[in-house]
Simulated scan of single mutants.
Amino acid sequence: MTMKQKIVIEVPLHCERCKKKIMTICTMADGVTSVTFQREEKEKVVIIGEGIDAAGVAACLRKKVNKYARLVSVANDT
């Protein structure tokens, strides 16, 4: 049984097109159940699911959307 994960990736959101692209990439990753955006001091995408390759998602975002996508945290969500 895999644990539910909460992954936070910091990624600048320049426009609505970027936001849609980020959403598409994140939702296509295996095990993802929800994707939300947080706009506090920095723009962050919060991904929740089971068995997600956090480093792989961050690398894909860096490659396809923005050179600056930083993996902030990966935590087991209860």
Rank of each mutant, 00 (worst) to 15 (best):
K19G: 05
K19Y: 05
K63M: 14
A55M: 11
A59G: 15
L13W: 03
I48V: 15
D53N: 09
A69R: 07
Q5M: 14
E40A: 11
N66D: 12
D77H: 14
D77A: 09
L71M: 02
P12T: 06
T24M: 12
V46D: 06
I25C: 07
K19A: 15
L13R: 01
R39Q: 09
V45Q: 01
R17L: 07
K21S: 15
N66T: 04
I47Y: 03
C15Y: 09
S73T: 15
A54W: 06
N66Y: 04
Y68C: 12
L71W: 05
T33N: 04
V35E: 05
T24K: 15
K44Q: 11
G56A: 12
M23L: 10
I9Q: 05
F37Q: 03
I47F: 06
E43M: 09
I47E: 03
M28F: 12
E10Y: 00
K44C: 05
H14M: 03
P12G: 06
S73N: 12
S34C: 06
K19V: 09
E50G: 08
E16F: 00
C18R: 07
C60H: 09
I48C: 05
R70V: 06
V45K: 00
K19M: 13
A75Y: 06
L61G: 12
E16S: 11
L61P: 02
P12V: 10
E10C: 03
A58D: 00
K42R: 15
G51A: 07
K42F: 05
V57Y: 02
A54I: 04
R70E: 07
L71D: 02
M23P: 08
N66R: 06
Y68P: 01
Y68F: 15
L61S: 08
A55Q: 15
Y68N: 12
K67F: 12
M23C: 03
G56H: 13
R62N: 14
G31I: 08
K67W: 11
V57F: 06
D30C: 13
V45T: 10
L13G: 00
T27F: 07
L13Q: 02
V45H: 00
A29V: 04
R17I: 07
S34I: 05
Y68L: 14
K67N: 11
